[in-house]
Design a protein around this nucleic acid. Sequence first.
DNA 1: TTGCCGTCGATTGTATACAATTTTGTGTCC
DNA 2: GGACACAAAATTGTATACAATCGACGGCAA
Lengths: 232, 232
Amino acid sequence: MAHSSASMSSKPSTSHDIAQGLSLAIHEHRIAPGTKLGEDELAEIYGVSRTVVRAALQSLSHIQLVEIRRNKGARVASPSLAEAHEVFEARELLEPRIARSAAARANATDIALLERHIRDEHAALDASDPGRALYLSGLFHNEIARIADQATIAGFVETLVARSSLIIALYWRHERALCEKHAHHALVRALADKDEAQAEALMKSHLVDLHSALDLRERNWRAGSLKDALTQ
Amino acid sequence: MAHSSASMSSKPSTSHDIAQGLSLAIHEHRIAPGTKLGEDELAEIYGVSRTVVRAALQSLSHIQLVEIRRNKGARVASPSLAEAHEVFEARELLEPRIARSAAARANATDIALLERHIRDEHAALDASDPGRALYLSGLFHNEIARIADQATIAGFVETLVARSSLIIALYWRHERALCEKHAHHALVRALADKDEAQAEALMKSHLVDLHSALDLRERNWRAGSLKDALTQ
DNA sequence: TTGCCGTCGATTGTATACAATTTTGTGTCC
DNA sequence: GGACACAAAATTGTATACAATCGACGGCAA
């Protein structure tokens, strides 16, 4: 149940742990897109050999959270604007369908879990931790995909949500407030009512909103210190 | 340009080469679902160390062509019937949309390439090489996704096509002949005519045909010798 | 015979050592 | 002062060595 971040010298982290830790740090915007992820550096931080770190980085590169170039090492991915639009187009294609299936299958336990996610998200926002709120918001979408019981598409959604986190870090318009509170809540209502058409429509419009909230100008930030972000 | 299969002792294969070689062998049904892929075995075959083989296997596990279980090694994936239906449902969702985009963007070069694919496929069938024909048929779908210029969805399609090859190995009804000749040819015509609606409809019905040609009973085969398949 | 348990062999997981490549720094020449 | 060339350092790629785990075989007791 522990967050299993770095600096836990007691347990010998596996490559999965490391991938999870890096993924969380990227999701919560503690590591910026474009940051170099040196193998020795990570090996030292997590107290393992480069072998394990390499496995973790390869794993993350497959879901395009990091970009590995031969003999050049790994960096946190930095999606172009074109890629950003592609990702949201893909989400607009997949997730409404998933929401429909989820509405047909959701039970009381699922609904309770989703409501809990929303509560946690609000708590994170109140605690001025927008990074964590964003991460939980992503989990919310993943959870709906899981409820739909279509592991294949759910896997795709997971990678799209992950990449969305990078995209938001790069292209989000800060002027526009987080309107997700209402969208997510309404979606859960539709799922609870088993209203498939409504769930599909709400998901679609929610994603279109997100997509239109991207900034078409230039990217916002870069780089950042790695060890600080990972060792809390 | 070489096929870069195994037994080419001249070039020091990279992990990408090995993943490609294994992938091709699986696509062409020279390696059956469920086959054990021992690290030492592959390392010897390709003349590299286990390090490189492990990287290749991990790579293939991410697209679910092989299944890696901790301390148990890697096997060629063996999708369940439920997974099989999931894969085709996902394809029915993604590929018609992709076909529509491809119709809007296809140029003369693209059409020529697709027609060449179809010719190669026929040639393979005439040469009684159904494995290669199946592989080329998969390439055909990948190529359409590439033409649509949506790298993200194209990547998804690629993994779905790959898994479809496993599914066909396990659940294909042999009684039903390869009806793909007409379907693929008609699809290319629609793309050449830039008839988006027709392309979308044809792709959808083509996939539904494939899906309905799956055998709901039990799996067909298993195991098989590895070195023979890889060393030609 | 059947079931259990311990040892042994085989296979995978991890760490370390070495080779190859890229990057960085420095000195020289124009 | 700037550009090029070369050398040194740092980083990644690959191979090998060692540790841990799993599975099979065989002995022993019930």
